[in-house]
């Protein structure tokens, strides 16, 4: 079983560990990931405000390649890339005027989108197509006793009419995956709130505050670490964690790791192999998980 794989710019950049961990997890499950040939950026959540038509055309370019590769599902670890592609196809299918403009832009290019390929999140594929039972079978090191805050972020859930995998106010895919590793999922009040990453482009002060709110909410529920499903939440909550801590003058950490990094640990990989950061590794050691 193979899927077209769209890493996104972050997973090949500052969030490279997301890509590394995802590939290891899929390999362990016996699934092949074929990187989309010559993929281009989805726009990062900012292109559509600058050039709405170009945004649609660029996202369809990736999906057209996916169709040519013989796939209907393009899986991505990044919620923003997922959201961007699904928004583009939604607008293309529902809005006649935007569709006409997009076709004008795509004229003469190699793009020939037939409407068959869709963007899917790796979490959706793991829960819906692979199944929790198969994932449990591969667990070599159960993460018992580890309390993991289950964070969803926003782009994977909203708007419900475009994403459609689970109810935006009552999701449970992350809790299912965390429970499969043997760890204890810890829901918390801000688990569907925005991490503030998009605000970093214009108003970083409030962006950092939103990230802090999420981490504090997880800390207040006595979680050990937080798990999230997005390469860009990774940048905000993990890579910039020290910035958040210094800004708000707190002496605690709430390390944030990507969902496949947690699964990878349960499958038996070491934190170094999965690119897990310093603070998360410290907590894992102190809880006796590794």
């Amino acid at each position: 079983m193979s899927y077209a794989y769209y890493p996104g710019c972050a997973s090949h950049g500052l969030s490279k560990d997301v890509d590394i961990a995802t590939r290891k997890v899929f390999e362990t499950l016996g699934l092949k990931l074929e990187e989309v040939k010559d993929w281009n950026c989805c726009g990062g959540g900012f292109l559509d405000e600058y050039d709405e038509i170009g945004h649609i055309a660029l996202n369809l370019r990736n999906l057209s390649t996916v169709e040519k590769m013989g796939h209907t599902k393009m899986v991505t670890p990044c919620s923003v890339c997922l959201h961007s592609h699904r928004l583009a196809t939604f607008k293309y299918k529902e809005n006649k005027e935007l569709r006409k403009e997009a076709e004008k832009r795509m004229k003469g290019t190699s793009i020939s989108y037939q409407g068959k390929a869709t963007a899917e999140h790796i979490v959706w594929v793991l829960v819906r197509d692979v199944g929790i039972e198969k994932i449990k079978e591969r667990v070599k090191r159960p993460l018992s006793g580890l309390k993991v805050a289950s964070y969803y972020g926003c782009q994977m859930l909203r708007p419900e009419e475009i994403m459609g995998f689970e109810p935006a106010f009552k999701p449970h895919s992350m809790e299912d995956l965390i429970a499969a590793t043997g760890a204890t999922p810890v829901p918390f009040p801000m688990n569907k709130a925005c991490c503030g990453f998009p605000l970093m482009g214009s108003n970083p002060k409030v962006g950092i505050k939103l990230a802090f709110n999420v981490l504090k909410s997880a800390k207040d529920q006595q979680a050990d670490i937080l798990v999230h499903p997005c390469s860009l939440c990774h940048l905000q909550l993990d890579s910039l964690q020290t910035r958040i801590m210094s800004e708000f003058n707190v002496n605690w950490t709430m390390p944030a790791i990507y969902i496949t990094q947690l699964l990878g640990l349960a499958f038996g990989f070491s934190p170094e192999e999965l690119g897990i950061g310093k603070y998360a590794t410290e907590i894992l050691k102190s809880k006796g998980v590794i």
Binding site: G45, H83, C154, A193, C194, G196, P198, L199, N203, L210
Partner: peptide
């Protein structure tokens, strides 16, 4: 420019 695009 103060919106965080959370789509809520």
């Amino acid at each position: 420019w103060r919106c965080t695009y959370c789509y809520m």
